[in-house]
Amino acid sequence: MKIFRADYVFPISADPIINGYVTIDDQNKIIAVSDQVPKGFEHVPVENLSGVITPGFVNAHCHVELSHLHGKVQKGGGLVQFIKNLQAIRNSTPQEIEAAAIKADSEMYENGIVAVGDISNSDITIPIKAKSKIYYHTFVETFSFTPERAQTTFEGALKLMDQFKPQPCSITPHAPYSVSKELFKLLKRYCDDHPNKNVISIHNQESEEENKFYRYKLGAFNDLYAHFGIDISYFKPQARNSLQSVIPLLTNKQDILMVHNTTTNLKDIYFIKRFDRRINWCFCPNANLYIEDALPKIDLFLDQGFNLTLGTDSLASNNKLCILSEMKVLQDNFASLNLERLLKWATLNGATLLGIDKEKGSLDPGKTPGLNLITGLDDLKITAETKVKKLV
């Protein structure tokens, strides 16, 4: 048995507790969360801490297999240039990729992350995830903007997903600009046939160029397809943003995570509300600044009834895999965001998306969510001195 006392305890599922106590057993399961030592546990030593105790963090969007690209992809220049640069240097030896992924996994664990929604295009992270102390849900990503390759691409992704099993995994589209309508239809049919068993994650509106291409078939994405030798003569302008174009192609039987959302506007959000789709949102602000030097219009998403989560994206587009760092960027740029709200995005909302909210995400008796200690706050605001320490 252990009892921790801190200046504040944020259970997430209940109001914060001043001078709160968290009691756990030898399996790190929550026994009690209260404003005093629970009755019958007076004999257990109390570890007094300065700071805020929270559940472990959930990183809803990451690419562990890209960790070997840390510091190698030039900042700025926009999404299209980022994709070109990434693909030019992405390949490396399996040993280098594996070593960097192992280091990234360890970094996330030390940064208080207990669960990750991770994008994979290969099988290289399977043994790493099998041994990890972190819970992983792998999104096996599929992409092909060429209609004729839809069936072959889809079947290849299914085979890769079978390799990840029995680890939690699902098949998912990459982005509107990299998935043909034919491939979207195959994914929708699969999700409809496996209700509540294939949560999907899709990169959404990272750049205004994406919307420009879908609306008018103009802009930098034309250069991108030409750069990779992809024939897009079949594609017709949709006269609406990319999100509005693909929403009707997505399943209504499964949760959908829209990631990045850098240029998503209010009309897009209202458009989604007209459809029976289970939309969640994920924000990765450090990656948005790294690639586009822009942030999503966060205030548009507040109090709209959606599940909002946080991610780090990859080390190709971020300096570190740290949810606290993502929270700080959002807090510094949006006055409407306080610590309590951000912590819910960073814990329970991510756990709910991944279907592990009965075990993680909040400090409720019977759960094993992990415990983080956040220090260096100034009146419950994240500062340059704020740090996270994993307690259990």
Rank of each mutant, 00 (worst) to 15 (best):
M1S: 15
V9K: 15
A14P: 10
A14L: 12
A14W: 05
P16G: 10
I17W: 09
I17E: 04
N19Q: 14
N19E: 14
G20T: 12
G20N: 13
Y21D: 08
Y21T: 12
V37W: 01
K39Y: 12
F41G: 03
F41M: 08
P45D: 09
I53P: 14
V58F: 02
H61E: 07
V64T: 14
L66S: 10
S67T: 08
L69I: 05
L69E: 08
V73P: 06
G78H: 05
F82K: 05
I83L: 15
N85E: 12
R90H: 11
R90L: 03
S92A: 14
T93V: 07
A99D: 04
A101R: 07
E107H: 07
A115K: 01
N121P: 02
D123C: 00
I124M: 05
I124V: 10
T125H: 00
P127Y: 00
S132D: 01
H137T: 00
F139K: 01
E141I: 02
E141G: 04
F143V: 02
T146V: 11
T153A: 03
G156T: 01
D162R: 02
D162M: 07
F164W: 01
S180I: 08
L187Y: 03
C191N: 12
N198V: 09
S201M: 13
I202C: 11
H203E: 06
Q205L: 14
E206M: 07
E210H: 09
K212W: 05
K212N: 13
Y214R: 13
L218P: 04
F221C: 04
I232P: 09
F235M: 11
K236H: 12
P248R: 12
L249G: 03
T251W: 07
I256E: 12
L266V: 11
I269F: 03
Y270E: 15
R277Y: 04
R278P: 13
I298W: 14
D299K: 13
F301R: 04
G305Y: 01
F306K: 07
L308P: 09
L308V: 10
T309A: 06
T312E: 07
N319D: 05
V329M: 03
L342Q: 06
W345K: 03
A346C: 04
L348P: 04
A351M: 05
G355Q: 11
E359T: 14
L363M: 09
G366A: 08
T383N: 12
V388R: 15
K389S: 11
V392M: 03
